[in-house]
Amino acid sequence: MSERVIRILIESFPKILLPGLKMTIPLTVFAFSLGLIIAVITALIQYYNVPLLSRAARVYIWIIRGTPLLVQLFVVFYGLPGVGIMTSPFPTAVAVFAINEGAYAAETIRAALEAVPHGQLEAGYCVGMSRGRTVRRIILPQAFRTAVPTLGNELISMVKDTSLAANITVMEMFMTTQRINAVYYEPLALYLEVGLIYLIFSTVLSRVQRVAEKKLASYGRR
C-alpha cells in the first residue's frame, strides 16, 4: 500500500466515522424503535384477530416483505413528490426503515406471542385478570424474551441496510465515502474502510446482543 493510500485512509477515517455517529446510528435507533412500536401493534392486531385490521396487517406485511427496501425508499422519496407530497431525506429514511422493520418484527413478535402457552392466559383469567391485562403483564413480556434474539439480528441487519439511504441523499457513512472517493479515487481502499466501520458497528451490537440474551436467557433459569 502506498504512502498516499495510507494517508487518505487515515484522513478519511474520522470523516466517515462522524456521519456514522451522527447519521447511521440515529437513523437506526429512531427507525428501529418506531419499527418496534409498529410491530407490536401489528402483532397484537393479529393476536387478537381484530376483524378487518387483521387483514390489513396481513396485506401490510405481505407487501413490505415482498418488495425490496431500495424500491420502497425510491417510491417514497422520488415517487411521492410527484403526487404533491414533499419529503426530506432523513425523515423519509426513518419512516421507510421503520415501516420495513415493522413488518419483519411484527412476524417475529406474533410468532413469539403464539408460542406463549395458552395456560398463561387461562391462569390470568382465573385470578381475575382481564385479557388485556394478562397480555400486557404476562404474555407480552414472555413473548419479548422469545423474540429478543431474532430482533437483535434484525437490528444488526438494519445498521448495514442504512447504507441504502445513500440513494436518497442521506449523508450517512456510505454516501460520505462515495464523496471522498470521488475526490481521491481509491475505491478499493475506501470501500474496504467503510466496510470495516460497519463491521465494527455490527460486532459491537452482536456483543451487546449476546450479553442481553444471557441476561434475559430465561427467567432465572438455573
Binding site: 402457552p117 387461562e122 391462569a123
Partner: peptide, 13 residues
Amino acid sequence: AFVFQNFNLFANK
C-alpha cells in the same frame, strides 16, 4: 379460584 394440573404459574413472575 382454579389450581391447574400443570400449575400454570406466570413464567415471567
